[in-house]
Computed example of a mutant assay.
Amino acid sequence: MTADTRHIEAAIYERLSRVIDPELGRSVTDLGMIAAINAVSADATDATGETGETSAAGATADSQPAYDVTIQVELTVPGCPLSETITNQINGAVASYPDARLTPHIEVTSMSHDKLADLVADLKAERKQNPFNKPGIKTRIFAIASGKGGVGKSSVTANLAATFAALGYDTAAIDADIYGFSLPKLFGVHTQPTNLNGMLMPVTAWGVKLISIGMFAGADRAILWRGPRLQRSLEQFLADVWWGEPDVLLLDLAPGTGDMAISVAQALPNAELVVVTTPQPSASDVAVRSGLVALQVPMKVRGVVENMSWYEHKGEKLRIFGEGGGQRVSEQLTDALGYDVPLMAQLPLEPELRETGESGRPAVLTPEGALRTDGIGREFRTLAERLMR
């Protein structure tokens, strides 16, 4: 090994420190995924002097020396679905080396069981269980609640999460509606989370990191959990899933004021409640009760969202479900809680919201994944911006 090759290997390693594993959010060097880097001169024959003055590496003076670079990459799991993404980033890092012509050869294997176990242990020790309760956490946590089912709470959660992601926020979502999970379908997810030696990697869809009981085998069966077991499911979603440090975490709660709402308040005291209702009194009266849970647990109610506020037909807004429900909830919660609980959005009733959502793409997004600039896309963008203020 020459001084030149040692310099190249060190420079490439430094460049690889900027290649980030998409799931773990850490550089491949920090994770120990780069097992070896070997640079060998590609100019194997000695220069004879007949072709002109040569450099020490055997190349002509007016050209860069050439090297073959072999990089041994150890992925965390065999058959990692992000293998191609990682190798493409590594190729890009090697190509950025300015002082020589480098030909990369990437050899991909997987970590040994012991090495993976040590990595997972280090990650868990660093995180120390629930990562969203540590001091200085930057994540804004919004728990989306409703008093009754059928008001579009999950649809609001899915489209709001997709909006945050499209706006550039690192976004995560937990389907905390254990009995009536629906986020996997709304995001078109049909795969299970990767199990990294006991630590789960959330499934990413439309830019949102997701976890749901609906992603696991047998999830189509009725779930009859109560009390401690229900609370444990939330603790597992928080502590046993590698979330990184997202900017936004949304929780799709079960309707009403049951065990899961109380568990969220206990596990995530910094969460902010967003109450979803529809205009009619039968929904808004029940929605108030879901907000009043804040009188019993340390959780602030951030605001109210009125869904299905109107249906636009030939330029006219038809109030199919009446009107005023969101404002009634806002005023009653403001009076009961002693602080302002604003009506943050009134969302129209759009058949496309259901049709597109059931096809596996949040309706606020175009087929290419960009945020729509009309109608529902504009409404959700305004809601997301208000929440982040």
Rank of each mutant, 00 (worst) to 15 (best):
G150M: 06
N133K: 14
K153C: 11
A143I: 10
D175M: 06
A125G: 08
E126M: 06
K148Q: 06
L196R: 03
N159Q: 11
D175C: 03
G150D: 08
T163M: 13
T194H: 05
I141Q: 01
P184M: 08
Y179Q: 11
I144S: 11
A172L: 08
I144P: 07
I141A: 02
A125D: 08
G188T: 00
A166F: 04
S146D: 08
G188K: 01
A166R: 05
T163C: 14
Q192N: 10
P135G: 02
G198K: 09
N130I: 04
S182M: 10
I137C: 14
K134Q: 15
A158T: 02
G152E: 11
A158K: 01
A143H: 04
P131H: 12
F132G: 00
H190N: 15
I178Q: 12
R140S: 15
H190K: 12
K138S: 14
L167P: 12
A172E: 03
A176L: 00
K128Q: 13
N195G: 11
E126H: 05
M199F: 03
I137D: 14
Q129P: 03
N133C: 13
K128R: 12
N159G: 02
F142V: 02
P193K: 00
S155R: 04
A162P: 11
G180D: 07
A143N: 11
A158H: 06
T171D: 09
F187Y: 15
T194L: 15
K148P: 13
I144A: 07
S154A: 12
V151W: 03
K148S: 13
T157N: 02
G149Y: 12
L167G: 04
N133V: 15
L167E: 14
K134N: 00
P131G: 03
A172T: 02
D177T: 11
F164E: 05
I178T: 13
P131E: 04
T191Q: 15
F181P: 14
G147L: 10
N130K: 05
N159P: 07
F132P: 02
S154D: 12
Y179I: 06
A176G: 06
K134L: 06
N197V: 07
F164K: 10
G149V: 10
F187S: 15
D177Y: 07
A158Q: 03
V189Y: 02
P135F: 06
T163N: 05
T139V: 00
Q129S: 09
M199Q: 13
T194P: 05
G188L: 02
N195M: 09
K128H: 12
P184H: 06
